[in-house]
């Protein structure tokens, strides 16, 4: 088995992410539309932005895929002229790194809902760090900040955890994942017989 990402892995990851990038671009105005209510209802759908990482990882199951997927999705969104401008690139990078780190901690061996939700929380933490620094969210009054963080965590687990896993399961059922997953040891043994 070859180490690292092959061109196939890279291209498939990027294409999945660009598809999510289009989704993010459609998502952006919706996010801003619910935002002015002030009670952070927008944060419930924030988790959508971390989805590319976990979905791509669940499909390809290789190291580095989650990070690449977040970067690709954010640059796709950026090149299409996102209303968030450049910050999407940096947020994408940080969110991807944090998700990747969680997956790395489990040696890229587990693909269950628990780990994926942990990766979602990783991305969520990454985005919160950026917000503390850029959006001064630490200067919100305490009850409001708590609401903000709790809503974002719920949104992350809902979209990046649960929803991503269900999408990946549905994609497995269509059979496309067999194209891109590296052949396992069991497959090689089956050939030897």
């Amino acid at each position: 088995m070859q180490k690292g990402l092959k061109l196939t892995d890279i291209l498939v990851t990027i294409v999945i992410s660009i598809a999510f990038g289009i989704l993010y671009k459609i998502w952006g105005p919706l996010y801003y539309a619910v935002k002015p209510f002030g009670l952070h209802i927008d944060q419930l759908i924030y988790g959508m932005w971390f989805m590319a990482a976990t979905v791509a990882f669940l499909i390809i199951r290789k190291p580095g895929v989650a990070l690449l997927a977040e970067i690709a999705a954010s640059s796709g969104e950026f090149l299409m002229g996102s209303e968030f401008g450049l910050e999407v690139l940096l947020y994408g990078l940080i969110q991807g790194l944090f998700a990747e780190f969680i997956l790395f901690a489990f040696r890229y061996k587990r693909f269950d809902l628990f780990i994926i939700s942990l990766a979602a929380l990783g991305s969520c933490a990454g985005s919160l760090i950026m917000d503390f620094y850029k959006g001064y969210i630490g200067d919100l009054s305490t009850w409001n900040l708590t609401l903000f963080i709790v809503f974002r965590i719920i949104g992350s687990i809902l979209f990046t955890g649960l929803f991503a896993v269900s999408i990946a399961k549905a994609l497995e059922a269509t059979g496309v994942t067999n194209l891109v997953r590296s052949s396992s040891k069991k497959d090689h043994e089956a050939l030897d017989q």
Binding site: L11, V12, I14, V15, I16, A19, V55, I59, I167, L171, T174, V176, T177, L179, V180
Partner: peptide, 8 residues
């Protein structure tokens, strides 16, 4: 997604 993955 499945069509995009196949094409990719």
């Amino acid at each position: 997604l499945s069509q995009s993955i196949r094409r990719a």
